[in-house]
Write a protein that binds this DNA or RNA. Sequence first.
DNA 1: CGCGCGGTGGTATAATATAACAATCGTCAC
DNA 2: GTGACGATTGTTATATTATACCACCGCGCG
Lengths: 165, 165
Amino acid sequence: MTSPRPADTFPTPEHDHAECIDAALTHAEDTCRRLGLRFTPIRRRVLELIWQNHEPVGAYDLLDQLSRDGRRAMPPTVYRALEFLVAAGLVHRLATLNAFVGCAHPDHAHQGQFLICRNCRRVVEMESPKVGRSLKREAEALGFSIEEQSIELTGLCPDCSSEAH
Amino acid sequence: MTSPRPADTFPTPEHDHAECIDAALTHAEDTCRRLGLRFTPIRRRVLELIWQNHEPVGAYDLLDQLSRDGRRAMPPTVYRALEFLVAAGLVHRLATLNAFVGCAHPDHAHQGQFLICRNCRRVVEMESPKVGRSLKREAEALGFSIEEQSIELTGLCPDCSSEAH
DNA sequence: CGCGCGGTGGTATAATATAACAATCGTCAC
DNA sequence: GTGACGATTGTTATATTATACCACCGCGCG
Ligand SMILES: [Zn+2]
Ligand SMILES: [Zn+2]
Ligand SMILES: [Zn+2]
Ligand SMILES: [Zn+2]
């Protein structure tokens, strides 16, 4: 079972990030094959770029990096790839940042809760069933049925809060 | 004690919305006077426009409406007013919609959870202490300290889900 | 072959937001 | 009053993010 590293905690500087990238790409291949989706070179490359680190990336950053590859990429190219990756559950879009981050739990359908460090910009994807249940229950009490959720928490990660004296 | 209507449930078509607007404006005046902030005509007018209904409004929509007033408004004008109103806790920005909505609980500091109907676009601001506590606890377990939260739930409000057979 | 469909390339433009500087207004000390 | 100063607004320009639209390509299929 290939799967990206759990990443349900902030990654250490020592962690083998090449493995993060490799796991994400391998998992994406598997998923796409299983679902009959086409994991084309552009889509693969965009996913790889998104996984360059654990920080969210803007679409135009990706565009620049694609251009540096040699291919003259235009906005629709990267947005199409992103749309595909988000739909396939391989990438999440962070609405508060207009940026994209690799999904840490791509092996099952979910909509996580994101912890975003305002200092180092790293992101961790939590998945708290408790929070999900509370929200669902309280929304239902108002007669509201949730279809999508966007939960983004900004603050300081452990490393950055200990730095701040 | 003036305060906008609770709006912790979806508003009925029959409710006296003029009262919603009036309460929001009166409360804003009070708040600004208390905090020594200047509730200028532009800021007042923008808040009034935001409260035209219970749906979020985009900055450029507001801009159009301001222009229709006669004043030749430019983007910075409306963005500055919005910045002020958000900072004063009178308005919230919805990241998933790039839009703004009047705060339903402006009488105390908070960061609510928004229920957004994808059909009628109405928004309700929940304030669930339970959700807040769960998130805080689970984030702290990862060493993360939350400074801001953005929680936006999209789905169907009671009225729109009963319409859909 | 002829057709349809998903993917890509490319141009243009829409929609959202901010930078930078000038002009004006309010307030307060003098 | 009036000059000084900070806060607010006016104005122009530009940055940033995202989509509409059409042409072309490659491939499977009747
Ligand atoms: Zn890593
Ligand atoms: Zn950090
Ligand atoms: Zn109302
Ligand atoms: Zn509705």
